[in-house]
Amino acid sequence: MIDPTLPSHMRPDRSFQGLILALQRFWADKGCVILQPYDMEVGAGTFHPATTLRALGPLPWKAAYVQPSRRPKDGRYGENPNRLQHYYQYQVILKPSPPDLQELYLASLDAIGIDLKLHDVRFVEDDWESPTLGAWGLGWECWCDGMEVSQFTYFQQVAGFECAPVAGELTYGLERLAMYVQGVENVYDLNFNGREGEDKVSYGDVFLQAEQEYSRHNFEHADTSMLLEQFRMAEKAAAQYLEAGWNADRTRHLMAQPAYDQCIKASHVFNLLDARGVISVTERQSYILRVRELAKACGAAWLATAAGGAGAPCGASAA
């Protein structure tokens, strides 16, 4: 049920930002640290180090955050009512996965105004896999009245490492969910700030121009020679930082996160190159493999850090 004390412009079914705030509050109440988006371009909330890296290792972890996600290929010049090259995901990661994760998820839907006595919510098989991250998990896509509104995954492997313990990951497609609770057919018609009349700001007011500009950029103008060079540079830098981060006996790592940033960078650059159509089918596979190799090496490095669960604090053994 939506918090009845909320002013109408803050209600999750009236404004896009109200939806985000309701989720933030819900998961804060469940003990999550509420993080801010990662300050790099990523294809999905999973890339945030708070998920990819924190899913590895034995230490418990609960976090929730909004992550702007970029899928250069999905740009439609602002002409498609459902497809965007930049959109928001709401990401929750709970490690180890709690026994009542499904119930928590359903309660979060209730909190944003989806009445479970009125709407048909279903867990439909959907096994998740990220070839670039070397990650996979089992779970479902969550349907509300036939529409996929979230992805629910029990991570089994990340960066090529078994998850021990397993983390539960929830990903809400915020625009889609907002369209549903607001009863809107076109994403650009979403009410962003919950105000009416002159004060109203729509999703289109905020993002339509950006979708048009980035679609031009992604498909027509992105500088491919620069991007190719950037990919090589990121790959090289990642390898360099990874190497430099290991201590003498390779038991502790001191720079897993800066190295992982380069892996994220390479992944996004690859997505841009892919959208520009300069990567052939066979090359595509090899680019994906190269990013995965980076992700794996970063995962190995992370597991040798304190937050990755390595026994002693990083500094202690790094002579």
Binding site: P96, S97, G137, L138, G139, Q156, A164, P165
Partner: peptide, 19 residues
């Protein structure tokens, strides 16, 4: 099949199709 929850921290944990 998959592992889940606290028990999945240890090797040999029970596997089932979903928890």
């Amino acid at each position: 099949s998959m592992r889940w929850g606290k028990a999945s921290a240890k090797p040999g944990a029970l596997r089932w199709v979903r928890p």
